[in-house]
Design a protein around this nucleic acid. Structure first.
Length: 863
RNA sequence: GCCGGGGUGGCGAAAUCGGUAAACGCAGGGGACUUAAAAUCCCCCGGGCGAAAGCCCUUGCGGGUUCAAGUCCCGCCCCCGGCACCA
């Protein structure tokens, strides 16, 4: 838009300099210049803020900030479709928070960036036949345009794009730190393989057996992978949750994901098998070699107290001991079963309602409690990923084992008796309730809690096991056999093994490869680029090859918040002094879909960097709030339904201020809301009315005294908004401001400046452009955002002098009376008796009791 | 099955410590202004009975505590999100 005059007038913007821009910002003719024209006005202020560096920090400012506030939101993945309402909703909610603190005088750093590596981008590039290196910059440019348009308080001098070598250089550096710290290791492991995406997936990316991206059934494969040892931190990650100011739902999701369970690790010695028919059946028949005798089947159980009822063992079909324990005559059956299990996709494998299957191996263990030989089976209801991949089956007290034992006619003894049971009460199903041990030798009669401790201690003494803690959490597999990610900075040398790339050689630049389509080989496309992967060993100088896998996108986003304030620093990932001043992040706002993925990894990386001496804190986000989800007209938005809200035309028509205000008005920010197309009229009308109030209708006397009733309402409104904004209670804050403006304009009265100016500031976090414009029109030379003029409220001015007291008779409202605030019970009662309808209900009954809640109600109990 | 979060007018939603249920907004109805429309402004707007005054009912369902329950307790039902053969 054209506003050359205004721009020129503002070139030397300094405090005290009244530029006169309050009137000359629209070069149009006189009759249109005072109309509320959001698009023009928003463009004007955005360019002014940009010129003045209103939202940008210099390196010096980072180093010297006295009251820093790091306001973070989850950076977007720049898709080709552009920003969707969900993004804008989240960013606006976070921006409102940042702007509020800015108006309170904090130095608010609010960065944004782009999480642009990963399978999403790569698959889309493949689909449209473009190279991601060409596609991503376009998407980033489009996102940047949109992000600027919505008026976020972003520091555009400190953005990150995870796909630039300047950024991923440090992602690779991070990998090396973890590698050197012993927290990264390569191991062959069964992994989730998506046959459609042709890549390995993290457990978190598998949603009930399906690929979270393409819904293909996930298969199992064994590939050498790089892992981060996040499980080493499981207990700390869990313990620290107690002290984090995070949304409860997010903390709960993390603690479920970590999945701590207390129990025991137990060793069941393998029994040697009677060759042919020696028939003795005793463990030490002399046929057992010493090596064999040492072999055990190890299990994890949360119910060591039930060990006397363990009548068989079950190994997962993938368990490494299966071959050892299987007797030759059972071999064909076992092999067939294992083949069937491995062919089965994880959906079918994890279906819980299917009937139990399994095969006897022919092998046996000795139950260390009873000394009895018990058979070893394999069954797919035992998962290799959890615990040791083997269980002791206690059919009497575990429903899964009960079903299995019933089907295969294995014994089902009772070892726990409930309050109404005896040791011999038959079991119709597994009994898992409270009770006391039975049929358990010396432990009979003990309640479960006590028995768990005593039995475990007893087994420990016998060397048969010990108390332990098991976690559901797995190590983080970060290898991806794909193209679009940072190469893992490792060089494989036949002589020296896996050698880290020297830090001074970083970044290992991702080469431009035209043929980046993944294939079914399980090998990265980079393995096709010989001139790239052939290199020398940094240690011995011999021929060597680069690691051709790239790292998981979640690694890029696990540390980006450390980079933002230090993007001016070229020779370190984050500057120690700046980091000390600005981190940990004060408030982080984002979607709960990242509760266990991104947020847990970011915590792990921070904790690891802390332990390795790079950071002096171990939790990255002091406060985290999960925002809700936006639906439309009661239905989930999706591309396939064609009911997605497209933000650009709405912003075009109503302006970013209205759109922001409307999104925040839909419902509680932390619960989301229902976007109804017509609803935007309310917030639009409000801003328009506010505009007219200041621009057209204001009392010309700037010193005019406020109306006492309006002033009282003003202080009540300031109080409410000041209390609710930092708690993200945006919808009710907006309602309060609307109510206040209604009071200011009621009966078409002429508003005075003292009534209106504070409202302009209150509304500013939601509608920053119109607020700045009105602030300027009210005669202020300094930007609203630099002046930090958050209004104070005066409790005395808030107080009502007369109140309406509800009068109840027997709990039912029969009338109201007007009274001076703080009126005594006697006064209230007298007034109530004078109220005709109340008097009617008091006639001919006896007043038995009076309940007086001062200034609220009077309840007269009669009978 | 387990763990969260919910269920309030036609709709989105409000409601400190238990104290006048439905603030604010949308949609709808009526009116003013206008040649007309848009925009704007004013009034009405949970249900039932009543001419009115007023009375009765109403926060998913059923009980309970209390002078008083959307709010607290017990038992259910339904919706949304997460986890799920986790030993």
């Amino acid at each position: 838009m054209a506003n050359h005059g205004a721009e020129a007038a503002n070139q030397d913007h300094t405090p005290g300099h009244t530029s006169g821009h309050t009137r000359d910002h629209t070069p149009d003719s006189d009759d249109t210049r005072d109309r509320y024209d959001p698009s023009a006005l928003e463009a004007l202020w955005q360019s002014r803020w940009d010129e003045h560096g209103t939202n940008r920090f210099t390196l010096d400012e980072f180093r010297s900030a006295e009251d820093p506030y790091y306001n973070l939101m989850m950076f977007p993945y720049p898709s080709a479709e552009g920003l969707h309402v969900g993004n804008i909703y989240a960013f606006t909610g976070a921006d409102v928070h940042g702007r509020y603190h800015r108006l309170r005088g904090r130095e608010v750093f609010e960065p944004i960036g782009f999480d642009a590596f990963g399978i999403h981008s790569e698959n889309f590039a493949l689909k449209v036949g473009l190279h991601p290196m060409d596609l991503i910059p376009k998407n980033v440019a489009n996102f940047t345009r949109q992000l600027r348009r919505i008026g976020g308080m972003f520091d555009w001098d400190h953005t990150v794009d995870t796909t630039t070598p300047e950024y991923y250089r440090w992602t690779q550096w991070l990998f090396l730190q973890l590698f050197k710290g012993g927290l990264a290791e390569q191991k062959e492991a069964p992994v989730n393989w998506c046959p459609s995406c042709m890549t390995v997936l993290a457990n978190e990316q598998v949603i009930s057996g399906l690929c979270e991206r393409c819904d293909s059934a996930v298969e199992q494969r064994r590939i050498a992978q790089w892992f981060f040892r996040i499980t080493d931190f499981a207990q700390r990650l869990l313990d620290n949750l107690d002290d984090l100011d995070w949304s409860e739902t997010t903390k709960k999701a993390q603690s479920n994901w970590i999945g701590r369970s207390e129990g025991a690790f137990l060793r069941f010695p393998m029994a040697d098998e009677p060759s042919a028919d020696t028939g003795s059946g005793k463990a030490d028949s002399g046929m057992t070699s010493p090596a064999n005798r040492a072999e055990t089947v190890d299990v994890f159980t949360t119910r060591p107290d039930t060990i006397f009822g363990a009548t068989y063992m079950v190994l997962s079909p993938e368990h490494p001991l299966v071959d050892r324990v299987t007797l030759p005559e059972h071999r064909p059956e076992i092999d067939a079963y294992r083949k069937q299990a491995s062919a089965m996709d994880l959906v079918a494998r994890q279906k819980t309602d299917k009937t139990k299957t399994g095969v006897f191996t022919g092998g046996h263990c000795v139950n260390p409690a009873t000394g009895e030989r018990i058979p070893i089976w394999i069954a797919d209801y035992v998962l290799m990923e959890y615990g040791t991949g083997a269980i002791m089956a206690v059919p009497g007290h575990d429903q899964r084992d009960f079903e299995f034992a019933t089907k295969f006619e294995l014994p089902i003894p009772r070892v726990v008796a409930g309050p109404d049971d005896t040791a011999d009460t038959p079991l119709e199903e597994a009994y898992v309730g409270p009770g006391r041990l039975v049929n358990s030798g010396p432990f009979d009669g003990l309640p479960i809690d006590e028995a768990i401790a005593k039995v475990t201690a007893w087994l420990d003494e016998k060397g048969a096991g010990e108390k332990t803690i098991n976690y559901r959490l797995h190590d983080w597999c970060i290898s991806r056999q794909r193209y679009w990610g940072p190469p893992i900075p490792i060089i494989h040398c036949a002589r020296c093994g896996a050698v880290p790339v020297p830090e001074e050689d970083l970044p290992v630049v991702l080469p431009r490869v035209e043929d980046f389509k993944p294939d079914d080989s399980g090998i990265s496309p980079l393995a096709r680029v010989e001139e790239w992967y052939r290199t020398e060993c940094p240690d011995c100088g011999g021929e060597a090859e680069r690691e051709t896998d790239v790292s998981d996108t979640f690694l890029d986003s696990a540390w980006y918040f450390l980079r933002y304030p230090s993007t001016d620093i070229a020779d370190a990932p984050f500057d120690p002094a700046i980091t000390r001043r600005w981190l940990p992040v004060d408030t982080y706002i984002g979607g709960n879909e990242h509760a266990v993925l991104h947020l847990l990894y970011a915590r792990f990386v921070t904790m690891a960097l802390h332990d390795l001496g790079h950071l002096d804190f171990e939790e990255p986000f002091t406060r985290f709030r999960a925002h809700g989800l936006i639906i439309r007209e009661g239905a989930k938005m999706s591309k396939s339904k064609g009911n997605v809200v497209v933000p650009d035309p709405i912003i075009e028509e109503y302006g970013a201020d209205t759109f922001r205000l409307y999104l925040m008005f839909l419902g509680p920010f932390e619960e989301g809301g229902d976007y109804r197309d017509l609803g935007i009229q309310g917030p639009f009308g409000f801003l328009k009315r506010l505009w007219e109030t200041v621009v057209d209708d204001l009392d010309p006397d700037p010193e005019a005294a406020p109306d006492p009733d309006v002033e009282r309402k003003l202080h009540q409104t300031i109080e409410q908004v000041t209390r609710q904004l930092p708690e993200l209670q945006y919808n009710t804050s907006i309602a309060a401001m609307m109510e206040y403006l209604n009071a200011v304009r009621s009966g078409g009265r002429t508003p005075v400046r003292a009534e209106v100016e504070p409202l302009v500031v209150l509304v500013a976090p939601f509608a920053p452009h119109i607020a700045e414009e009105l602030w300027s029109r009210l005669g202020h030379a300094e930007s609203l955002w630099d002046a930090a003029p958050w209004p104070d409220f005066d409790p005395e001015k808030m107080a009502e002098d007369t109140i309406t007291l509800a009068v109840q008779v027997n709990g039912k409202v029969r009338g109201t009376v007007e009274l001076p605030a703080g009126a005594s019970q006697e006064t209230a009662l007298a007034a109530a008796r004078d109220e005709p309808n109340v008097a009617r209900h008091l006639a001919e009954v006896e007043l038995r009791r009076v309940i007086h809640v001062p200034d609220r109600l009077l309840n007269l109990v009669v009978g």
